[in-house]
């Protein structure tokens, strides 16, 4: 039994040539499984000591639109720091709802993606922003859009030998937010969550749902309908209450919720519609400031 703690991405990728090795980032999912006896690692690759994975940078528009590139082990607490939070407010909202301060200090964006829990808190934000996952292997680096990266509950498009090294998120102009329902007022797994991002440049609305399907769900029909009703020259405070409610119903219709011990399917569908209506009201309703 061995543990490898490389200090560079190249070393880490080289280590992944061993198919038995298991990748450990923040440990907040990995160690829960180990402690419960559900995961018995023989070889572990720890990313804790790779400084370049813990950094982020803002890249100006060139060939791509302006975006932020987050290293895979950027933590939830990192996402809450003001300089990053002001660039990606919905991501910061989502990060603040993750577990506890202790979990936010340890858990990482790459880990949230790799675990691919239907309740992963940042995943609706990544889906709404159409983030791109950078994956490295001895063969090189490839980009995988989040929409195809997550293939099902706790399933991803990651191939053996591949490592998540970064996530790229576009910088949008427009209102962004994240809301999450839990039965407790802190430290709780989402019963339903929703990310809304407005892009005034492309005149689109992106809305993604969490905990109401096998993975994050884009409510595309609702997005397009709402984008089509907005007066994009004057988007703030122009959408009427009935339209907001209709948007909520469309979003609820996009959900694929199930019954489990955390909530009923009927409640999840209802609640996600309420969240959608409220988020849209913040963006476009009376008193909004988008």
């Amino acid at each position: 039994m061995t543990i490898l703690s490389p200090t560079s991405i190249d070393e880490a990728v080289a280590a992944l040539a061993d198919p038995a090795i298991q990748v450990l980032a923040g440990g907040t999912d990995f160690m829960v499984e180990v402690n419960a006896g559900h995961r018995r690692p023989d070889k572990v690759l720890s990313l804790r000591h790779i400084p370049e994975l813990r950094t982020w940078e803002q890249l100006p528009a060139r060939d791509d639109p302006a975006h932020v590139r987050l290293g895979a082990t950027v933590t939830y607490t990192d996402m809450l720091q003001p300089d990053l939070a002001q660039l990606l407010p919905a991501l910061a909202h989502a990060a603040r709802t993750v577990g506890s301060p202790q979990i936010r200090n340890a858990g990482t964006i790459g880990g949230n993606l790799a675990t691919a829990s239907p309740a992963g808190d940042t995943l609706p934000v990544l889906a709404a922003l159409e983030a791109v996952v950078e994956v490295a292997s001895p063969l090189g680096v490839r980009d995988i859009p989040v929409a195809t990266f997550i293939t099902g509950p706790k399933r991803t498009a990651l191939s053996p030998g591949e490592l998540i090294v970064a996530v790229r998120l576009p910088l949008l102009d427009g209102h962004q937010e994240f809301r999450k329902i839990g039965v407790r007022n802190a430290m709780v797994i989402a019963v339903a969550s929703l990310a809304l991002a407005v892009d005034t440049r492309t005149r689109t609305v992106r809305c993604a749902l969490g905990s109401v399907g096998p993975g994050p769900i884009r409510a595309t029909e609702a997005e397009e309908w709402l984008a089509g009703t907005i007066d994009w020259d004057r988007p703030a405070a122009t959408t009427e209450a009935p339209d907001l409610a209709y948007f909520g119903r469309l979003v609820a219709g996009a959900a694929q919720p199930i019954d489990d011990h955390r909530g009923t399917a009927a409640y999840r569908r209802h609640a996600i519609g309420v969240l959608a209506e409220r988020a849209a009201a913040q963006a476009f309703g009376a008193g909004s400031a988008a």
């Binding site: 909202h93 603040r96 709802t97 994240f178 809301r179 999450k180 329902i181 839990g182 407790r184 007022n185 802190a186 709780v188 989402a190 969550s193 969240l275 409220r278 009201a281 913040q282």
Partner: peptide, 16 residues
């Protein structure tokens, strides 16, 4: 907003 129902999830605006 943390002091409203829903707490850290910030589900409620004041009017709700």
């Amino acid at each position: 907003p943390m002091t409203r129902p829903g707490g850290a999830g910030r589900t409620a605006d004041a009017a709700h």
